[in-house]
Amino acid sequence: MARNVLIVYAHQSPCSFNAALKDAAVEVLQKQGCQVTVSDLYSLNFKASATAEDVIGELKDPEHFHYGEETMLAWQEGHLSPDIMEEQKKVKAADLIIFQFPMYWFSVPAIMKGWIDRVLTQGFAFTFQAMYNNGIFKEKKAMLSFTTGASQSMYSPAGLNGDLNVTLWPLQNGVLHFCGFQVLAPEISYSPGYCPPEARTQILNSWRKRLEGLWTEKPLTFTPCELFNLSFQGGFMLKDEVQAAQAKKKYGLTVGHHLGKPIPPNNQIKADD
Rank of each mutant, 00 (worst) to 15 (best):
R3S: 12
V5A: 10
A10W: 04
S13H: 08
S16P: 05
A20W: 00
D23H: 05
L29G: 00
K31T: 05
C34W: 00
V38E: 03
S39E: 04
L41E: 09
L41D: 07
Y42E: 10
Y42A: 07
S43K: 15
L44Y: 01
L44F: 01
N45E: 14
F46N: 05
A50F: 01
T51V: 09
T51L: 12
E53H: 13
I56M: 15
D61M: 06
D61W: 06
P62Q: 11
E63K: 14
E63Q: 15
H64K: 13
H64M: 07
H64V: 13
Y67E: 07
A74L: 12
W75Q: 13
H79N: 15
D83G: 04
D83E: 15
D83K: 05
E87Y: 00
E87K: 09
K90F: 00
Y104M: 10
A110R: 05
M112N: 10
M112W: 02
K113W: 02
K113P: 01
W115T: 10
I116H: 04
R118D: 08
T121I: 14
T121S: 11
Q122E: 11
Q122W: 10
G123V: 11
F124C: 12
A130W: 01
M131S: 10
N133H: 14
G135K: 07
F137T: 04
F137K: 08
A142V: 08
T148R: 11
Q152P: 01
S153T: 12
M154L: 12
Y155N: 06
A158R: 11
G159Y: 04
L164G: 03
L168A: 04
L168K: 06
P170D: 05
N173D: 11
G174L: 10
G174C: 08
V175F: 05
L176A: 07
H177D: 02
F178M: 08
F181T: 02
V183C: 03
L184N: 01
A185E: 12
P186V: 03
I188N: 03
Y190L: 06
Y190D: 05
S191A: 14
P192I: 06
P192R: 05
Y194E: 07
C195W: 00
P196Q: 05
P197S: 06
A199C: 02
N205R: 02
S206A: 13
L214R: 01
W215F: 04
K218E: 11
P219M: 07
P219Y: 02
L220E: 02
L220M: 04
F222E: 04
T223Y: 01
T223M: 07
E226H: 06
L227F: 10
N229D: 15
S231C: 06
S231V: 06
F232M: 13
Q233E: 15
Q233Y: 02
M237G: 03
E241I: 08
Q243K: 15
Q243W: 01
A245K: 12
A245N: 13
K250M: 09
Y251L: 06
G252N: 06
I263T: 13
I263F: 11
P264G: 09
P265Y: 10
Q268I: 01
D272A: 14
